[in-house]
């Protein structure tokens, strides 16, 4: 029983990370049809800069972590918005080329990060409490899992509120469904593209800082690893669906944890099998719009 609880909550924590990456990917894809390979780099640069600033202000404390998070969110949002504005926008509606540019950006930036911060992981200091465990139903749960879950829930709530309550949110939801019809109502949908990139980048930025808490290190490849799982999550959840991304994040991460524990470390493979199964039964994903 305690093992199951541990696996569940750890899975939820990992799922939280996946969601922070996948939410942006899914929204960006849903609205603009852009597959953003640079999303992992948004995460990595935010993790590095968040860590650099946070440790200078106050290393290994809550205050330092909060600073890291704020810096990470800001960096993620700014870098993402700039990417959209400077690179993606020039290739308006040419989805393949847009994806290619993000591929180039991801290759170049990962190499750059390696050049600046080296190829080895850099271990980070965390607030005392996050390194401890809490006992729930007999299971000793690492405390950082709770932080991750809480942050992901807040982000999910925040994005949902934004989508439901603001005019831009309305435009984005409509655009995910039928972008052409939005422009045919006299709305310049491109303005919301930058916004969606910024939101996705901010979530990924927070994800970067939290990933460094979860793994205990920052590295140039932090984003690349998470990105692949986030891709899988987005496809399983249904491209363009935020709720789908949330549900699939949790399903994938929990499945992965259980398979790693009970099936001899085969979590990654089981996830791919799950992806194949979803595609066979429901090609548009759990909650995706009809392709």
């Amino acid at each position: 029983m305690s093992t199951i609880v541990l696996l569940l909550i750890t899975g939820l924590g990992l799922g939280a990370l996946y969601f922070l990456v996948a939410s942006g990917l899914s929204l960006i894809y849903g609205l603009m049809g852009v597959l953003n390979f640079a999303h992992g780099s948004f995460l990595t640069i935010s993790a590095f800069l968040g860590w650099e600033v946070g440790r200078r202000v106050s290393d290994g404390t809550w205050w330092g972590l909060a600073i890291s998070a704020i810096v990470g969110i800001a960096v993620g949002a700014i870098v993402a918005a700039l990417t959209e504005y400077l690179l993606i926008r020039r290739l308006y509606e040419r989805h393949i080329e847009q994806a290619l540019v993000t591929v180039g950006l991801s290759l170049a930036t990962v190499a750059l990060f390696e050049g600046i911060w080296g190829t080895d992981p850099i271990y980070t200091a965390r607030p005392e409490w996050l390194t401890q465990t809490t006992e729930i139903l007999g299971a000793k749960i690492p405390n950082d899992r709770f932080l991750l879950i809480a942050c992901a829930v807040i982000v999910l709530g925040g994005i949902v509120l934004f989508l439901k309550r603001t005019r831009y949110g309305l435009i984005i939801r409509a655009g995910v469904e039928n972008r052409q019809m939005v422009t045919a109502l006299g709305i310049d949908v491109r303005r919301s593209f930058t916004l969606v990139f910024a939101i996705g980048g901010a979530a990924a930025g927070l994800g970067g800082v939290l990933a460094s808490v979860y793994y205990g290190y920052v590295s140039a490849h932090l984003g690349s690893v998470l990105l692949i799982f986030a891709f899988i999550v987005t496809v399983i959840g249904g491209l363009g669906s935020l709720t789908g991304a949330a549900v699939a994040s949790v399903l994938v991460a929990v499945l992965q944890q259980f398979a790693n524990y009970y099936l001899g470390g085969t979590g990654d493979l089981v996830v791919v099998v799950a992806l194949a199964a979803v595609l066979l039964i429901r090609p548009r994903g759990l909650m995706g719009k009809i392709a």
């Binding site: 309305l170 939801r173 409509a174 469904e177 019809m181 422009t183 045919a184 709305i187 310049d188």
Partner: peptide
């Protein structure tokens, strides 16, 4: 671009309605 044309006072009712079904 389309949105500028519409902003100049063109209303459009597309074939097959194209309402936003989720809204």
């Amino acid at each position: 671009p389309t949105h500028r044309i519409v902003q100049r006072g063109v209303g459009y009712v597309p074939e097959d309605r194209e309402v936003f079904g989720q809204l």
